[in-house]
Simulated assay, not measured.
Amino acid sequence: MTILVTGGAGYIGSHTCVALLDAGYDIVVVDSFSNSFPKSLERAKQITGKEFPVHRTDLLNDTALYEVFRGNKIDAVIHFAGLKAVGESVSDPLRYYENNIVGTLNLLANMQNFGVKQMVFSSSATVYGMQNSMPVKEDTPLFPTSPYGRTKMMLEMIISDMVTANPDWGVASLRYFNPIGAHRSGRIGENPNGIPNNLLPFISQVAVGRRPYLTVNGDDYPTPDGTCIRDYIHVMDLAEGHVHALRYLETAKGIETVNLGTGRGYSVLEVLHAFEKASGVNIPYQIGPRRPGDIPISYADVSKAHTLLGWSAKRDLAEMCMDTWRWQANNPHGYDK
C-alpha cells in the first residue's frame, strides 16, 4: 500500500514517514521545503534503511501535483502540508488562506480524479480556541482565534462536504494537541526557522547555548504554579497515531474527527524542570507578560482515539524531554550543520 505524504519533510511529517516505513507501508513524499529541510528525509531513509521518492513541489502547483498522482500508484493520502505559525497567520492572513485552503482543494481534486478515497488529515487543537471546560472533546463547539486555526476548521468542513458527496471515501481528521520530542535515534527532530514559537525547541536551544534564557509568558494563571498547562504528546506517539488511523480507514467509510493527545496536562515550569532533569543542564528563565489569547489550561479527552483507533500515547514527559535533548545535543544547529 502506497501512501502520499504531503509536507513529509516537516517535523511531524518526517517522524510519520519513519513510522509508516517501519509499519511496512510504501510512501511518496511531496514537500515544497519552504519551512522544512530535505535532510530530514535523507535521515528518515537512513533510519529505516528504505528508499522512497520525493517530489519538490507546492500544492498550489496543480500541474506538478497532477504529475505526482499520474506517476505513482497512490492508495491513500496523509495531508500535513500547510503553513502553521499562529502569529504569522494573524499578520499575513491572505497567504495562509491561499496556501492552506487552495492547496488542499488541489489535493482533493487530484484524489477524486485518480480514485484515491482515503485520507488522514492533519488538523489541530487550535480549532477549539478558547475553552473553559476540560478535557476538550471532539464535539466541543469550535471557536478558532487565528487565521491558521480558521483554515483548519474550514478544511475540516470542506473535507466533510467531499465525504458527503462521495460516501465511499474514508477520512480521519486528527486534531493534535502539543507535539514535542524527537525520534529516539537523535537523527530527526523539531527544527524551527528563526525564533521558536513552541516551548520545547526554545528550551533546548537555551540548553545548547543558542539563546540566553527562556521567557515564561505569565506566572499568574489559576494553575498550581501559575503557568499555563498544556497537553504535550511525543511526536512518535503522534506519528504512530497516523498508522492506526490508516488501518482504521481500511474498512471504514465516512469522516471521523479524533483528538490526539495524552489526556493530561503539564505546566510550563513542569516541562522546564523535566527537561533540566533529562539533560542535566540548568535552564535560566525569566517571567514575562502573558501572551494575548493564551488560556490557562488545555488538555484532550482521548477516549475516542482509544476506542475507535485502538491508539493511546505511550511515552511520558521524561522520555519526551530526553529525546528532545538527544536531538538538540547531537544537532545544536538543527539540520543546518
Rank of each mutant, 00 (worst) to 15 (best):
T2P: 02
I3Q: 00
V5N: 05
G13F: 03
G13P: 02
A23L: 04
F33G: 01
N35G: 02
Q46I: 02
R56M: 13
D58S: 12
E67Q: 13
V68I: 08
V68A: 04
D75P: 00
A76T: 06
K84G: 03
V86D: 08
G87V: 09
L94Y: 14
R95C: 10
Y96R: 15
A109G: 09
G115L: 07
Q118G: 05
G129D: 02
E138R: 08
E138Y: 04
T140I: 04
T140L: 05
F143H: 14
M154K: 12
L155P: 10
M157Y: 08
I159S: 01
D161T: 09
V163S: 11
T164I: 13
P167Y: 11
A172L: 09
L174R: 05
R184S: 13
R187V: 00
E190N: 13
N191I: 01
P192A: 06
I195T: 15
P201F: 02
R210Y: 01
P222Y: 10
P222G: 10
R230Q: 08
M236D: 08
L238P: 03
H244Y: 14
T251K: 15
A252D: 10
K253W: 09
I255K: 06
E256M: 00
L260N: 03
G261C: 07
V268R: 01
E276D: 01
S279I: 07
Y285P: 01
G288M: 00
R291M: 01
D294C: 00
I295W: 01
A300L: 10
L308T: 12
C321A: 14
C321E: 09
M322N: 14
W325C: 07
R326H: 05
R326M: 10
A329M: 12
N331G: 04
G334A: 07
